[in-house]
Amino acid sequence: MLIFEPFFLRALLAGIGLAIVAAPLGCFVVWQRLAYFGETVAQAGLIGVALGLALHMDVTWGVLVVALLVAALLLWFGRQKLVGLDPVLGLLHHAALAAGVIATSMLDGPPVDLAGFLFGDVFAVSSTDVTIIYVGGAIVLAGILLLWQPLLRLAVHEELAAAEGVKRDRIRAAFIFLLAVTIAVAMKIVGILLVMAFLVVPAVAARPLAGTPERMVLLTALIAVASVVVGLWLSFAFDAPGGPSIVIVMSLVAALSLSWAALGRGSGATR
């Protein structure tokens, strides 16, 4: 069967690994309302792609460096209190995308496959990419495990946690570092425009069905893994792009789950 071709197995392996790594990060992004923040960092990744191509190195490194720089810039902007971070993010994520498109267009050599970077090309992942996902993913998961308690306290009530002695700046910086690593690693699978959807949508889908934070992470991972399998199969069967197919399946699950919550059945959602 064609479904057991190496390229399909690699895509499956990469997608499932990423789904598991993305689950706890997606939950924290939802809990701390950082979706827009992550979106901006991810879209700045295109500048990193240009950087990686220009320096003839793996684009993952370029994306990681630029994502970290942009995240640091955003944290710095957040120090002023005159303009809220949301309008700043709204401005910057378009600017970052525009800058990335210009940067890739100015590279010497053959034209860059922009669509591949924007939406990912899951069936083109190499065995090196799979290795990067599993090594990078292990580092991210270890980091989350280590910071789980303080991260959770900050997510529940930031000021309370800080008053009780949680080092909020340090913990937040560490989390953003892990988020940037995940974005860089995930970029090849689902692309710059869909990375945050890959993180956030399964977590949104899991929220109404979970009563504890741990169960929500587990459910998020399950939903994401199932979406990867179903999405890739659909993509293969209907000859549709892989990354977008996965995200569409996730979104359908989230839509169902949110409808369930809207009917007042969700866990801890009603007042």
């Binding site: 309302r33 997510a155 529940v156 009530h157 929220r207 009563g211």
Partner: peptide, 9 residues
């Protein structure tokens, strides 16, 4: 600060 979005008893 806002609604608690972490599921927790």
């Amino acid at each position: 600060d806002s609604d608690v979005s972490v599921p927790m008893t």
